[in-house]
């Protein structure tokens, strides 16, 4: 059974609302995002990129600060805002910093987000953003391995056929050592990204 529009909105709101206070108040490491107490290993998976070619996520992002976001191009608010803010900050960062960062957008709506559409949409925000698509269930499994809730398709509008997709609103930051260390909820601002991204590259983590 597909959840109703109201349920999806509630899901989004809940996901969005879980941690913004924690994000804005920072933490003992000085990040504006939420530091994950037990860092998560970068999952290994292969999806299709915007050129229609296989993309080995772990291999192709090895050694980079990798920001992963799950969303969809028809998203009315959270996805475009998140990607626009990341794109704006990536353009503002020093090249020595920005070239060590990979931003990966994985669609939660593969039925509508073709590789071409995904590529076109992402280029609105930044030319180097990576877009991935694949099987809906596989993408949900990947989300769950990252500790994120699975996406849920909404009920299509009877007139237009369009539908919403409930999805998590977090960006997961994997540091160059391959561990997911910080979560960024919706509401993370450009100034927060500009503060945290260089720090994520510079900080040394003691996982002992």
């Amino acid at each position: 059974m597909r959840p109703s529009r109201e349920l999806l909105i509630l899901l989004c709101a809940t996901l969005v609302g879980c941690a913004p206070d924690a994000a804005r108040s920072g933490n003992d490491r000085g990040y504006r995002g939420v530091v994950i107490p037990e860092p998560r290993a970068k999952p290994a998976f292969t999806l299709t990129d915007t050129r229609g070619e296989p993309f080995d996520f772990r291999e192709r992002t090895r050694g980079y600060l990798t920001l992963v976001f799950f969303g969809y191009t028809y998203c009315p608010d959270i996805c475009p805002v998140t990607m626009a803010n990341l794109g704006a900050v990536m353009r503002e960062l020093r090249p020595s910093v920005s070239r060590r960062i990979r931003v990966v957008f994985v669609t939660t709506d593969p039925a509508r987000d073709t590789p071409e559409r995904l590529g076109r949409w992402l280029r609105n925000f930044h030319p180097n953003f990576i877009g991935l698509t694949g099987d809906f269930d596989r993408i949900n499994e990947i989300q769950q391995t990252m500790g994120l809730p699975p996406a849920q398709l909404g009920v299509p509008d009877s007139a237009t056929g369009s539908y919403l997709v409930g999805h998590s609103a977090y960006v997961v930051a994997f540091t160059p050592d391959g561990l997911g260390r910080v979560l960024y909820p919706f509401g993370t601002r450009q100034v927060d990204w500009a503060h945290d991204l260089p720090k994520l590259l510079e900080d040394e983590w003691d996982d002992s």
Partner: peptide
């Protein structure tokens, strides 16, 4: 300012052709 100062407008659903800054 290098970055948007109003969260209200920075985090609002974008209107095509505009950017927050």
């Amino acid at each position: 300012s290098r970055y948007p100062v109003y969260a209200t407008y920075e985090l609002a659903a974008p209107i095509p052709g505009t950017d927050a800054l």
